[in-house]
Amino acid sequence: MVKDPDDIIVRTVARFMIPIIQLFSLYVYVHGHISPGGGFQGGCILAASFILISLAFNIGEAKKILSGRKNLLFIGLGVFIYAFTGLVPLFVQGNFLDYQHLSQFLPLDPVMARYYGVALVELGVQITVMAVMISLFQDLVTAGRHESILKDRENGIDR
């Protein structure tokens, strides 16, 4: 079943690599304006760093950092950012996701408002994709029973 990997090489390299992976995901997100990349790809890379934590250490360690409830909150938060950014222009006679109308609320000209609007929407996409990927991984790897497995480990039952 779920066995603790006890490997100092993997743990040391993972401890070094995880911050680099997270930094690279932010790079991919920010660079999405002018090069391949963007919210979805950045979110997948960010999720990969969390998956590396649960592979190199164990799933309990990863859930200490990002528990199931927090993960659910992040899924909702990303969709909320996306929908909120999209819906705001509707109130000033724009279309859905028509970012240039954001310039009426922010101290920006329409071109820069469009630029930052895309960035906001991509941020929402990134957060949601990260949280969904992590939750998919945890459900797949423990057959949807990670809560009960963690509870058993606290009580000393090794599975």
Partner: peptide, 16 residues
């Protein structure tokens, strides 16, 4: 540098 760290570790993990 990243590849030089990641690839031997992946090989080591698979073999182990």
């Amino acid at each position: 540098l990243f590849w030089f760290l990641a690839s031997p570790t992946a090989t080591h993990t698979l073999l182990r």
